[in-house]
């Protein structure tokens, strides 16, 4: 374990016993009297370290074990095997000094009191975390400015939009100013603007309080914007730990080159340069191997009347989706 890391996970595994039920009345009857249980391994021997102040993206398809891992990190469930250390605490002991340092935000569950304005929930949390009135007031003011919430704090939660509710939820989760944030799909279901708002807020919270953030999301926009480092798991196993850039170059040895031409050309002409993705007489998109990118580009520039040229990495979503469905030996 490195001395600096604030989160350290070693050979972590979690097994769950699940029961299987056949559909229909007979299935229900059988299920009631003899449960068919089997053990599934939700998290399988994963290890990683996270340094103080890092924002790490945690991605993988549904059921990959992301949430289970997060829950072990914040001490909600006991690991079946392996070691977890968060800020020098053993999470599942849930000491009060540990719990004051962390928070868990779940995009699908809320702690706000449904029938009352968020302000009431905030005051409950302030008392639970032992904040003085002035302290609580200052923090509420600070967070509401960062999140751009005003009179919404005085409206019943059930009357708020999904985006407003998520922002209020973040306030309730961050009132005690935790230094370690576990965020489980915090932007789930939000429209684009609200997503961007939440992202920007998380970045500024991280900067302002040097907080460490571990974030799961299905929106690559979140990960791209926030995380310098990404951990990918699938079926409980860790597949990748590094920057998205690194991942892209590993997953795809190609770059995508888009050309706009002043004169029309035929598609055959381009096959010598790379794999044709999109074509019309004035517009071409090609995948060119990175190794020969420079020489082929200079050839293209010499031989063609090019009006505009754009070189990008293929979209990361596509690459990751491809990785989960095809073989993962690429990593």
């Amino acid at each position: 374990m490195s001395v600096m890391s604030i989160i350290s996970v070693r050979n972590l595994s979690k097994n769950f016993r699940v029961s299987k039920k056949e559909p229909g009345l007979i299935g229900t009857f059988n299920h009631f009297f003899s449960r068919n249980t089997r053990t599934i391994r939700a998290v399988d021997d994963i290890s990683f370290d996270i340094q103080h102040g890092e924002i790490v993206g945690f991605i993988g398809p549904n059921g990959a074990g992301k949430t289970t891992t997060l829950k072990m990190l914040c001490g909600l469930i006991h690991p079946s095997k392996g070691l977890v250390n968060v800020a020098s605490y053993i999470p599942y002991q849930r000491t009060s000094s540990f719990l004051k340092q962390i928070t868990l935000v779940m995009g699908q569950k809320q702690q706000l009191i449904w029938d009352l304005p968020p302000m009431d929930s905030l005051r409950v949390n302030a008392s639970v975390y032992g904040l003085s009135d002035t302290e609580a007031k200052n923090r509420i003011k600070e967070l509401s400015e960062m999140l751009d919430l005003g009179e919404e704090l005085y409206r019943p939660v059930r009357k708020l939009s999904l985006g407003e509710r998520m922002k209020a939820e973040l306030m309730a989760s961050l009132l005690h100013r935790p230094s370690i944030l576990f965020l489980d799909e915090p932007t789930l279901g939000l429209d684009f603007n609200a997503q961007v708002r939440v992202r920007e807020f998380l970045k500024s919270y991280n900067k302002k309080f040097q907080a460490t953030v571990l974030l799961t999301s299905h929106y690559m926009g979140d990960i791209n914007f926030l995380c310098d480092r990404t951990i990918i798991i699938d079926k409980g196993k860790l597949f990748f730990d590094g920057s998205l850039k690194e991942l892209t170059s590993k997953l795809s040895p190609f770059r995508s080159v888009r050309l706009e031409l002043t004169k029309p050309y035929t598609s055959e002409y381009f096959s010598q340069y790379g794999e044709l993705v999109e074509f019309n007489p004035y517009y071409v998109e090609l995948l060119i191997p990175k190794t020969s990118l420079t020489e082929r580009l200079s050839l293209l520039l010499d031989n063609l009347p090019i009006k505009d040229l754009e070189i990008t990495d293929p979209p990361i979503e596509n690459l990751i989706a491809k990785m989960f469905t095809s073989n993962k030996d690429v990593l």
């Binding site: 000094s97 569950k109 639970v128 005690h176």
Partner: peptide
């Protein structure tokens, strides 16, 4: 049943008290 019990366990005061 609905999983919001997690929030209780994450509070720094005794869960039985809450």
């Amino acid at each position: 049943q609905d999983g919001t019990f997690d929030f209780v366990l994450l509070k720094p005061i005794d869960s039985q008290f809450i």
